[in-house]
């Protein structure tokens, strides 16, 4: 284990994001799933985690937020599914340039933290078994909601983490809103088995992350 506290926290955050996209890919038996976050500096969408196609080379790559199907979800704040992307040369080329893979379908849902669209959960080529399109969209939206809750926790932890360069600020309270955890706990009993299992896994990861931060501190 790294002795660098920041490196360790970063690794755990990466693991958490990776587990999120692995779950999304598994739920839809998809070719790929990814989380893209908006870069505050220039507004670009940046790949923060990828499962499946592109997972070995996409991390950190970026594209303008106002383009593509992911851009639709980000701009409108609404989930969207497009099923014949390959028939649209512009979208297909855009997807191929950003992922190296030309999908037939793209699903995208916004990640909304505290009223801000901070990124997009994207799923390429969900399986072709007969299924309910509206159900797929609702499931994607629920996954995006849970992911946004976890990301909110992560981002709060990041912002609350002490800057190793700056002077320490002993006694400074963390800004995290514990009501988020209460809302998750309240919702969990009503979730489907699949979603409940996912949330449980994500919370276990968060617990693991906190253990690590405590240990490193």
């Amino acid at each position: 284990m790294s002795t660098d506290p920041l490196e360790s926290a970063e690794l755990r955050q990466r693991r958490l994001l990776q587990s999120i996209v692995e779950v999304a890919r598994s739920v839809f038996d998809a070719a790929a799933a990814s989380v893209l976050l908006v870069d505050e500096a220039d507004g670009d969408l940046v790949f923060e985690a990828v499962a499946g196609e592109g997972e070995h080379h996409l991390l950190g790559s970026r594209f303008p937020a106002g383009t593509g199907i992911a851009g639709w979800a980000l701009m409108t704040g609404q989930p969207v599914v497009v099923d014949d992307v390959a028939d649209s040369p512009q979208f297909a080329r855009s997807a191929a340039e950003s992922t190296g893979y030309v999908p037939s379908s793209i699903m995208a849902a916004p990640l909304i933290c505290d009223g801000d669209c901070i990124g997009v959960l994207s799923v390429l080529d969900r399986d072709s078994r007969p299924r309910c399109d509206l159900g797929d969209m609702a499931s994607l939206g629920l996954l995006a909601t849970e992911m946004a809750t976890v990301l909110e926790l992560l981002l709060t932890l990041r912002s609350a983490a002490p800057d190793p360069v700056a002077a320490p600020a002993p006694g400074k309270p963390a800004a995290f809103d514990l009501a988020v955890l209460q809302r998750v706990a309240d919702r969990l009993p009503g979730a489907s088995d699949h979603v409940a299992a996912t949330v449980g896994k994500l919370l276990a990861m968060a617990d693991d992350l906190l253990d690590t931060v405590d240990a490193d501190a």
């Binding site: 409108t76 989930p79 969207v80 599914v81 099923d83 014949d84 649209s88 979208f91 509206l134 969209m137």
Partner: peptide, 9 residues
């Protein structure tokens, strides 16, 4: 071209 799209949009 034409796309087949799903969503409240």
């Amino acid at each position: 071209r034409q796309l087949l799209s799903t969503g409240n949009s």
